[in-house]
Simulated assay, not measured.
Amino acid sequence: MLQNYEYFLMLAETKNISKAAEKLYVSHQCLSRYLKNLEDECGLMLFQRKPTLELTYAGTVLADSMREIQRIEQDTRRKLTDLKDGSTGEVRLGVTEGRLRIFLPGLIKAYQEMFPGVMLRAVSAPTKELLELLVDNKLDLVLGSPTDRVIHNLEYLTIMEEDLYLVVSDSLLQQYFPDSYPECKEKFFKGADIRLFQNVPFCAATKGYNSRSIIDEFLQTTNTTIRIIYEANQPDLLHLMTAHDYAASFSLSMYLPHIHSLNQSLAEGHKLNVFPIKGLSRKNPIFLIYRKGTYLPNYTKALIGLIQRQCTAYQEPLDQLL
């Protein structure tokens, strides 16, 4: 039953015999015969055939067990490699798209200097999709934000708690606060009252993203509305639009160095200002997530430590990040 379990897991993933056979480099006939023999051995139907290939309840139970077998096999290989020399291997890291561009360049350089024989592979996707890949043994670690679903066989290690800031250019401040600019900047650095920005155009993350959820909840609590004229899923893109004086935006802590970098190329009178939001106390926790009970080689533990140190730098006081 457990021979070639990867065949069954590929069928469960693709829900298509032809696609699964192609990915496994076997014939359609071979894979069909494998499935029939497995169902005969179990004495149960593992897939519904029509209208599409779908796992039955028995198939789901078997798939969960086979994923656990796959995890044990992967762990065993890591342990043996660790016992052999501890200097070669692979770590598969999942990071959300925006953070990947900000976070990965510095991380991968530092990690390769520590473990030149270990391949660090990074994948980007929304956190929910990354967690699915983690559960399916296709990732080792996920760096992500909270989701509406807690998976109980995963370990959540909090590595930082981000603040949300208001980002606005000098040009927009001068346009919308003509009577108090530039003196208003000193006031806003102590905490910008979002109610004063109701006429200012904003670009913001799409609904459902954490930064958007934080600001939407805060606006509802304070009975305030703002004028959002553009939405996108890439925080660095939103900050670029703010740098072009198109609209104000918001930034979580990890993206502040990117704003600092943008400011190096902006002319005086168009630079970006980052203000704490008065009355906003909600934090955005960032987790390192891995499967409970999974063996972590020394090089994976070292990567976790490196990520923790890198994230600690993003929690410096605002004036030190900019």
Rank of each mutant, 00 (worst) to 15 (best):
M1A: 12
L2P: 00
Y5A: 06
Y5R: 07
E6K: 13
Y7S: 05
F8W: 11
E13H: 15
N16A: 05
I17M: 06
E22W: 11
E22A: 13
K23C: 04
K23I: 12
L24P: 05
L24E: 06
S27F: 06
H28V: 15
C30R: 15
L35V: 08
K36M: 11
E39S: 07
D40I: 12
L44A: 10
L44V: 06
M45W: 04
L46E: 04
Q48R: 11
T52N: 08
E54M: 15
L55G: 04
T56M: 02
A58T: 07
T60L: 03
T60Q: 11
I69K: 10
R71Q: 13
I72N: 12
Q74E: 05
T76I: 09
L80T: 07
D82H: 10
D82Y: 03
L83M: 09
L83Y: 07
K84Q: 05
G86Y: 09
G94H: 05
V95Y: 03
V95P: 01
V95W: 04
T96Q: 07
E97S: 13
G98A: 07
I102T: 15
G106S: 11
A110T: 05
Q112L: 09
E113M: 09
E113V: 12
M114W: 01
P116Q: 05
V118M: 06
A122E: 07
A125I: 00
P126Y: 10
K128C: 01
E129D: 14
E129H: 13
L131N: 08
L134Q: 05
D140Y: 12
V142I: 13
D148E: 08
L154H: 04
E155R: 12
E155W: 12
M160W: 02
E161S: 13
D163R: 14
S169D: 02
L172C: 04
L173E: 01
Q174T: 03
Q174G: 04
Q174H: 08
Y176Q: 00
Y176S: 00
D179A: 11
S180M: 06
P182G: 02
P182R: 01
K187T: 15
G191I: 10
R195G: 08
S213A: 11
I214C: 08
F218M: 05
T221G: 00
N223Q: 10
T225A: 07
E231V: 06
A232M: 01
T242L: 02
A243K: 04
D245F: 08
L256V: 13
H258L: 15
L262R: 03
L262P: 03
Q264V: 09
Q264F: 13
L266R: 03
G269A: 07
G269V: 10
K271C: 10
L272V: 03
L272F: 02
L272H: 01
N273Y: 01
V274R: 00
V274L: 04
I277V: 14
K278V: 11
G279N: 05
P285D: 02
P285F: 04
I286W: 06
L288N: 06
Y290M: 03
T294W: 00
T294H: 02
Y295C: 02
N298S: 06
N298M: 00
Y299M: 02
L306E: 01
I307R: 00
Q308T: 11
Q310I: 14
T312D: 15
Y314Q: 08
E316D: 09
L321Q: 12
